[in-house]
Every structure is written in C-alpha cells, then in structure tokens.
C-alpha cells in the first residue's frame, strides 16, 4: 500500500506544495524545491509563453525537481501541456478534469503525472489513464473543492487503486501528515500553510488574513454553478451567498466573481477579493521561510509517529 514518494519524485521530504493559482510562482516553487519538498507552479493565469518564462526562471533558482500544474479547464491547457513537454519538466500535476488526452505526450516525454482527484470514480479513471500516483483532495482544501472530506476520501481511494495515493486538504502540521499516513497515504500535498511562506509573493494582506483566520472563517461559494470554491467568508463571499440564495443567473454570479482572485492576490483587497484558503488556516500562525516550514512539518511528523507507535 505504501510507496516511497521521495524516491518516485526524487525529493527529500514527502511533501508537495500544492499549486495555487496566481500565487505559486517561480519564487515559492524554487524555495520549496530548494528546501527539500516539491514546488508546484500554478499556470491557471498564464498562457504558454508565460509558463515557459516561469519554468526557465525556476531553473535559474533551483536545480531540484519541481512540477507544473495544468488546469485542464484553462483555455491555454493545450499550449501549456506542449510547453511542459518541450521544456522537459519532470513532473506534472493536473486539476479540473481528466488529463487523458495529454497522457501519451507526457509519457513520451518521460513526465511523471500526478492528477488531483476528488472522488473514487475520478481517481480510478486517472489510474486507467496511466497516472503515476493520485492526489486525493478533500473538501477542507482551499480553492476549487469536491464534496468529500480528506478523512473519508483517502482510505476509499487507497482501497480502490493500485498506485500510490497522496493526501491533500486540511494538512498543516505533523499531526495531519501522520493522520493521513494512517489512512494509507504515501505523501502529502499542502496549500494553505505555504500561503504564508516568506517566499510566497501573495499580497501581505492575504497572508495576514490567513494567519488571523479561525476554524469557522471559510465557506464554499459557487455550489450552484457546479464549481464550488473554498474562500474566506468576507463581503464578496456573503454577497455571493445572497445571490445564490435567490437563484441568481450564472451571468450575475460570473460578474461578481470576475477578477476576484487577482484582486485579493495582487491588490490585497480582503473585502471584495476572493481569498481562497483551507479550513486548516486556523492552525497557521506565522510567516516562515519555506525551508523552515518543511523542516517543521517533517520533524513534527516523525515525533508524532514515534510517540503514537510506541
């Protein structure tokens, strides 16, 4: 059941920094990879050439493995898939859909593929498509979410597949990692805690908001559109909820949501920006260099494991 994810990905710690749209750029990615984890470049807001430039910048900043995330819904998904092959990126993670049609090209280029799956059926499909491992992501996560919690999803995906499973959603310390280990996970993908990494270029207001967040501060909006997103429950989220309650049209919802992530990430608008983060934000209390976060996580994990298995 357990696989050596460090060996598969050629990294020191079994920890993946989840892609974060508009946020996980060459700065955060290279810091995480240099720190011994796997940095993942988000590309949802980039076109093919923008992605190529970021890949080259990462390579100037680190000689360690890193990954590129492809949002399959993005209008540039085809271009980005091509760039990733041309640039010999070692690892790809995918979100929002099935990477099936790109699989032959990825395999040809020797790329390791780690799709994100929010349900057993989708995880099984990814395995059939030739994924090397699957990232089972629970709805505690920040950003686009499914409906099943990490606690319930991970063991069910582990039982259904023959390839390694990486757990995501709600992990921010060694206890969370150890818990997912018990559920059968071989690796851990973490987003929210890396939002406050020193090298993360998100607006300081965003970091401060995540650090201040309590357990009940997030909500999911967009249930009615079929693409729910976990965000901090700010003015924008409350207006969204009100619109959804009176069954507003998709166009109205779209108009309210347009550009909202950019407003939060770049302008630091904590009222009308989309402040995506996970339910575990309450556990995130300080800004730290990525390397220190990775060391903390792993040492804490080892401590918890040795104390509980005594």
């Amino acid at each position: 059941m357990y696989a050596d994810i460090c060996q598969l990905l050629n990294i020191q710690y079994p920890i993946i920094q989840g892609a974060m749209a508009w946020i996980s750029d060459s700065s955060l990615v290279s810091a995480v990879s240099n720190g011994g984890g796997l940095g993942v470049l988000a590309t949802g807001h980039l076109d093919g050439e923008g992605c190529r430039a970021e890949i080259r910048r990462i390579r100037e900043l680190t000689d360690k493995p890193f990954a590129v995330n492809i949002m399959l819904l993005s209008q540039f998904a085809d271009d980005i898939a091509q760039v990733v092959c041309e640039e010999h990126v070692p690892i790809v993670t995918t979100g929002a859909g099935s990477p099936g049609k790109f699989m032959p090209a990825f395999k040809e280029a020797g790329i390791i593929v780690l799709p994100v799956a929010p349900s057993v059926a989708i995880a099984k499909r990814m395995e059939k498509d030739g994924a090397d491992a699957v990232i089972a992501e629970g709805c505690e996560s920040g950003g686009h979410v499914g409906k099943i919690t990490t606690m319930c999803l991970v063991p069910q995906v582990v039982d259904a597949l023959h390839i390694p499973v990486i757990a995501a959603g709600g992990i921010a310390d060694g206890r969370g990692m150890a818990a997912c280990r018990m559920l059968g996970a071989s690796g851990y993908q973490i987003g929210t805690r890396f939002l406050v990494a020193k090298e993360c270029t998100v607006h300081p207001n965003y970091k401060a908001r995540v650090i201040k967040a309590k357990d009940i501060d997030t909500t999911t909006t967009g249930q009615s559109t079929g693409h729910p997103v976990r965000v901090i429950r700010n003015r924008l989220a409350r207006e969204f909820e009100a619109l959804e309650k009176r069954a507003a049209s998709a166009e109205e919802l779209d108009a309210l949501g347009r550009g909202a992530l950019r407003r939060a990430v770049k302008d630091g608008d904590m009222d009308y920006g989309s402040v995506m983060c996970g339910q575990i934000a309450g556990l995130v209390t300080k800004e730290q260099p990525a390397k220190e976060i990775l060391e903390d996580l792993y040492q804490d994990y080892l401590r918890v494991m040795s104390e509980t298995t005594k």
Binding site: K101, S119, A121, I122, K124, R125, K128, G146
Partner: peptide, 24 residues
C-alpha cells in the same frame, strides 16, 4: 455535477467493459 458524471461514466465503463475518452 462532475462528481456524478464521472461516477456514471465509471459505472458504464465497468458494465460494458470499455473505456470512454472525451468525457468533457
């Protein structure tokens, strides 16, 4: 939603012993 759709496709694939591409 997409969770339902992929579950349906998964069940159909098992029933007919086929693999459906282009679910999108």
């Amino acid at each position: 939603d997409s969770l339902d759709l992929f579950q349906i496709i998964n069940d159909i694939e098992d029933e007919f012993d086929i693999k459906i591409e282009d679910v999108e």
